[in-house]
């Protein structure tokens, strides 16, 4: 039995040279490897799109951290994705200023347009929709991010345009 468990349990994958390079750069800023844990997970996520069990184990092994502790950090932070996400992660601000200016309606619009609820990914793997707390752009509400870019003063029409642009890029 123990062999069976061992054979199906996830194993650490090899980190890529790019990932190792970036992690090594972050390590220069801190006296202890543990401090790099979150940054290393973000680096893996930058290259892989999300943090799989195999990636998490690889980071833990590389930094010589207990995997459970690193998992505790990974699941604590909202922006570490422990499940696969689509190519374009839509972070729709649902905090109070955006709420007052109609973010719930925008969410319904996106759901209707893409057929996904919060936390879901489209079948073509192009979009994942996630709510995000106050993006600190309340004077330009409603606001959302797609990937690293922030979009402000949103309307359903503007969102349609952004979705179309993402689709055109494929």
């Amino acid at each position: 039995m123990s062999n069976l468990i061992a054979s199906t349990a996830p194993k650490a994958r090899q980190l890529t040279p790019e990932e190792i390079h970036d992690i090594e750069h972050e390590k220069t800023h801190y006296p202890y490897a543990q401090a790099v844990g979150l940054e290393a997970l973000k680096i893996v996520q930058k290259y892989q799109g999300w943090v799989s069990d195999e990636s998490l184990l690889a980071v833990a092994q590389y930094l010589e951290l207990p995997p459970d502790e690193l998992e505790g950090v990974a699941t604590f932070f909202n922006m570490i994705f422990r499940r696969p996400v689509g190519k374009n992660v839509i972070l729709l601000c649902d905090s109070v200023a955006c709420w007052m200016l109609g973010c719930d309606g925008l969410k319904d619009h996106i759901t209707k347009r893409l057929g996904i609820e919060y936390g879901q990914t489209t079948a073509d793997n192009l979009f994942t929709l996630i709510p995000v707390p106050c993006l600190g752009d309340c004077d330009k509400a409603p606001v959302m991010m797609i990937g690293d870019n922030t979009y402000r003063n949103l309307t359903p029409g503007k969102i349609d345009q952004l979705i179309d642009q993402c689709k055109a890029r494929g």
């Binding site: 905090s95 200023a97 106050c134 600190g136 752009d137």
Partner: peptide, 10 residues
């Protein structure tokens, strides 16, 4: 900066 309604440090 993450306090709802706060957009100054940005």
């Amino acid at each position: 900066e993450m306090e709802p309604g706060t957009f100054k440090d940005r």
